[in-house]
């Protein structure tokens, strides 16, 4: 009986440990605060078009192409992914409450794939955060006072308050957490972004490309 209880407790501890966010390791909870979306240093600029190479790695498979992202209005993003050869792979539209698939290659037009892409990019576009008055649990790093983590609705945002840049995001899930990294900032925009899913081994990497829209 005691042995059985010990196994159950151990299993619960292991599972809870697996679900704990990595982003807060080394940080201490210091309280709560009202946080606006702007306080997370979102980098997408209105009416701007950004071009990236997007590389998707899933186990032994590697796929790449060109991703065009346009913030066409407040809380409204259009995202078009083409192969390097020019063929359209998908064309998605994100708004706060909706996700519209304008087009998608048959091979990717599956609920599981679309759900994953929708969640990943909705988080990337900060569409999960209200513009104002989000209640955030705040964590600070004893080692570096400029670093701060905000937890809002189960999502974690690591920011550098001195440089006013967002460094990482984490969306913890027990077996398929999403880890977002932002680096190589230039003109307040991260030129390198990665999204990794520990459970599935899926990784999406974006590298910004400059001045190739023929204008």
């Amino acid at each position: 009986m005691k042995y059985s209880a010990l196994i159950k407790i151990s299993a619960a501890v292991l599972i809870l440990g697996a679900c704990a966010p990595e982003i807060t390791k080394g940080f201490r909870k210091t309280g709560k605060a009202a946080v606006a979306a702007q306080d997370l240093y979102p980098f997408w600029m209105p009416q701007r078009t950004h071009l990236f190479t997007m590389k998707i790695d899933f186990r032994e498979h590697h796929f790449s192409g060109l991703l065009l992202v346009k913030q066409a209005g407040a809380g409204y993003y259009r995202m078009v992914f083409n192969t390097h050869f020019g063929l359209g792979v998908f064309d998605f539209e994100f708004r706060r409450g909706t996700f519209l698939v304008h087009s998608c290659l048959d091979a990717l037009h599956r609920k599981s794939v679309l759900n994953l892409l929708e969640k990943d990019f909705r988080t990337l576009f900060f569409l999960d955060v209200e513009p104002f008055a989000n209640t955030a649990v705040v964590y600070h790093s004893p080692a570096d006072p400029s670093l701060e983590v905000n937890r809002i609705n189960g999502r974690y945002y690591l920011k550098n308050t001195t440089q006013k840049t967002l460094l990482k995001m984490e969306v913890p899930r027990c077996f398929n957490s999403g880890y977002y990294d932002f680096s190589h900032y230039r003109d307040n925009f991260p030129e390198t972004m990665t999204i990794k899913h520990g459970g599935t081994g899926l990784q999406i990497a974006l590298e910004k490309i400059h001045n190739t829209t023929g204008r």
Binding site: T49, L68, K70, V80, N82, H84, H102, T212, T213, G214
Partner: peptide, 12 residues
């Protein structure tokens, strides 16, 4: 690559 709805093009 011309994308009609976005009025954008990508040149390679």
């Amino acid at each position: 690559k011309y994308m009609d709805m976005l009025s954008e093009k990508i040149v390679s």
